[in-house]
Simulated assay, not measured.
Amino acid sequence: MDLQIDDDMERSGNTDPATLDLFTHAIAAHSARWEYLRLCLPDVHPFPSIGPPLPFLRELTMDLVNGTDSIREALHAAPLLRTVAVQFSPGHCISVYPWTQLTTFFGYGLLAHECVDILTQAINLVKCNVDLDWADEDVSPPSRNITLPYLSTLILRGCIPDDLPWKLLDIFTLPALQKLEIDEELLQGDPIGLLKSLISRSKCHMRELYVPDLDRRSLEKYRLALPAVGSIARAKLDQFNPWVVVDEMTDYDSDSDSD
């Protein structure tokens, strides 16, 4: 089921609040039959309370600010839920989701402390795609290392403060990691050192490394320094299907020596 009602529709008058309220309540009344759900509602309209359980729900995509608390109990009574994709906004409550049972997570607009809190709990993840929004916040490193024993694919995008007193990759131990895409900015000035440390600490067999927008010389340095990594490219993985490579730049001979 795909329920998407955006702010433009509401402002245009195509969806008046009373009609929208009746519609969302009618949808919620059939929540026990949901398997795949995508919710995108205006900030001004909360989603109605949903009574547990949700016995068949497997995948959930949400762009929803108001009303997340109203579905917390229901989501924690969704035993088959394994995939969650969330556009985070101020006021979004991360405790809504049953992190420990998820195997796939897509998170967009995550603040640093939210990312740390989620990944500390989501110990069964196999695929994770996180777009970080490091706002002006003082974030202490987690009190212990984050070990994700089953994580095979990790995408880390976004920005990071220049003066962050700890290294993002240093908080992870990922023994099953095979495929990593990471923005070079998140490697915090010591990309090869941090990657070597991650691989050594995790004892993982990384097969593919993607660092978008690398120049030719940097790419060759990565390849020389990390010979055990099967493929290193300046490419991106598809954000919704992180096992698919997109926008790969393979014509390295066309690069100028000034890169």
Score class of each variant (00 low, 15 high):
Pro17Ala: 11
Leu54Gly: 05
Gly13Asp: 05
Phe172Leu: 00
Leu102Pro: 12
Lys203Thr: 11
Ala225Ser: 15
Ser140Asp: 09
Lys179Asn: 13
Asp190Gln: 05
Ser89His: 15
Arg207Gln: 15
Phe47Met: 05
Asp255Lys: 02
Lys221Cys: 07
Asp131Asn: 06
Glu208Ala: 07
Ile171Val: 09
Gln188Ile: 04
Met206Thr: 00
Phe47Ile: 10
Val65Tyr: 04
Gly107Ala: 14
Leu198Cys: 07
Asp183Val: 01
Leu22Phe: 14
Cys128Thr: 06
Ala228Asp: 15
Leu224Pro: 02
Gly193Cys: 01
Thr61Phe: 13
Asp170Ile: 02
Gly107Lys: 03
Leu111Ser: 10
Glu10Leu: 15
Val244His: 12
Pro149Trp: 05
Leu3Ser: 04
Pro175Leu: 01
Pro17His: 10
Thr250Gly: 02
Pro98Asn: 06
Arg217Leu: 00
Asp163Ile: 01
Ser200Lys: 12
Asn129Ser: 06
Phe106Val: 10
Thr104Trp: 15
Gly51Pro: 03
Lys236Tyr: 00
Pro79Met: 08
Leu180Arg: 03
Arg217Cys: 00
Thr250Ile: 07
Ala112Cys: 09
Arg82Ile: 05
Thr250Asn: 11
Tyr222Lys: 06
Thr100Tyr: 07
His92Gln: 07
Ala225Cys: 06
Asp6Lys: 04
Val245Arg: 13
Ala176Met: 07
Leu177Ile: 05
His113Pro: 03
Val229Asp: 05
Asp251Glu: 14
Ala225His: 14
Val44Ser: 15
Leu219Phe: 00
Leu177Thr: 05
Ile160Ser: 11
Leu209Cys: 03
Tyr210Val: 04
Arg82Met: 07
His25Ala: 03
Leu187Val: 01
Leu219Cys: 01
Asp183Thr: 04
Asn66Met: 12
Glu10Thr: 10
Ile94Cys: 07
Val229Arg: 09
Met62Cys: 13
Ala112Pro: 01
Leu195Asp: 08
Val96Thr: 15
Leu219Ser: 04
Leu156Gly: 05
His25Cys: 09
Arg217Glu: 09
Thr83Asp: 15
Pro161Met: 00
Thr100Asp: 05
Leu169Gln: 00
Gly51Ala: 12
Trp166Pro: 10
Leu132Met: 06
Asp21Phe: 05
His25Arg: 13
Leu75Phe: 08
Leu169Met: 11
Leu180Trp: 09
Ala85Tyr: 03
Lys196Glu: 04
Leu174Val: 09
Ser256Ile: 00
Leu180Glu: 00
Ser140Glu: 11
Leu169Glu: 01
Tyr97Ser: 07
Val116Gln: 14
Thr104Lys: 15
Pro141Phe: 07
Pro212Phe: 02
Trp34Pro: 07
Ser218Ala: 03
Leu177Cys: 13
Pro212Leu: 00
Ser89Cys: 03
Asp63Asn: 07
Ile146Glu: 03
Arg72Gln: 14
Thr68Ile: 12
Leu214Met: 14
Gly230Tyr: 08
Asp138Arg: 14
Asp170Pro: 00
Gly230Cys: 08
Tyr150Phe: 10
Leu81Asn: 10
Ser12Met: 10
Ile94Met: 06
Pro53Thr: 02
Phe105Gln: 04
Asp170Lys: 08
Gln87Phe: 11
Pro165Gln: 02
Asp8Gly: 02
Gln87Glu: 15
Thr61Val: 12
Leu154Met: 12
Pro55Trp: 04
